[in-house]
Amino acid sequence: MEPELETPVTERSRIDLRAEGSCLYLSIQADDIVSMRSSLNTWLRLVQVAYDVVSVKDPVHS
């Protein structure tokens, strides 16, 4: 997810994302509640997609 961190979608929020072991830390700072909600929705969706992709079992080896 580094490209997403390097090019912010908006100047109204800042994101810090880091992984330590099996934990993922996401810190979002926003200038207003609308930006906070938008950033949270975007990043939680990206995390969910990444989790879903990792969770998919290989049908050939099932």
Score class of each variant (00 low, 15 high):
residue 1 M to V: 07
residue 1 M to T: 07
residue 3 P to H: 05
residue 3 P to D: 02
residue 4 E to C: 09
residue 4 E to V: 10
residue 5 L to F: 01
residue 5 L to W: 00
residue 5 L to A: 06
residue 5 L to P: 00
residue 6 E to L: 11
residue 6 E to V: 03
residue 7 T to D: 05
residue 7 T to N: 09
residue 8 P to K: 08
residue 8 P to F: 06
residue 8 P to G: 10
residue 10 T to C: 09
residue 10 T to N: 07
residue 11 E to I: 00
residue 12 R to A: 11
residue 12 R to Y: 07
residue 13 S to K: 02
residue 14 R to N: 10
residue 14 R to M: 07
residue 14 R to D: 08
residue 16 D to T: 12
residue 17 L to G: 04
residue 17 L to R: 02
residue 17 L to Q: 06
residue 17 L to Y: 08
residue 18 R to L: 06
residue 18 R to I: 01
residue 20 E to C: 13
residue 21 G to H: 05
residue 21 G to N: 05
residue 21 G to Q: 06
residue 22 S to C: 14
residue 23 C to Y: 10
residue 23 C to E: 15
residue 23 C to V: 13
residue 24 L to C: 14
residue 24 L to D: 03
residue 26 L to R: 01
residue 26 L to I: 01
residue 26 L to H: 01
residue 26 L to W: 00
residue 26 L to E: 03
residue 27 S to M: 15
residue 29 Q to S: 08
residue 30 A to F: 03
residue 31 D to H: 12
residue 32 D to N: 15
residue 32 D to M: 07
residue 33 I to K: 09
residue 33 I to Q: 13
residue 34 V to I: 15
residue 34 V to T: 13
residue 34 V to G: 09
residue 34 V to H: 10
residue 36 M to G: 00
residue 36 M to A: 11
residue 36 M to F: 01
residue 37 R to P: 01
residue 41 N to P: 02
residue 41 N to Q: 10
residue 42 T to D: 03
residue 43 W to C: 00
residue 46 L to V: 04
residue 46 L to D: 04
residue 46 L to I: 07
residue 47 V to T: 06
residue 47 V to C: 02
residue 48 Q to P: 04
residue 48 Q to D: 11
residue 49 V to T: 12
residue 50 A to M: 13
residue 50 A to S: 15
residue 51 Y to A: 09
residue 51 Y to F: 13
residue 51 Y to T: 12
residue 54 V to N: 05
residue 56 V to T: 12
residue 56 V to Y: 05
residue 58 D to K: 05
residue 58 D to A: 09
residue 59 P to T: 05
residue 60 V to Q: 14
residue 61 H to R: 15
residue 62 S to D: 11
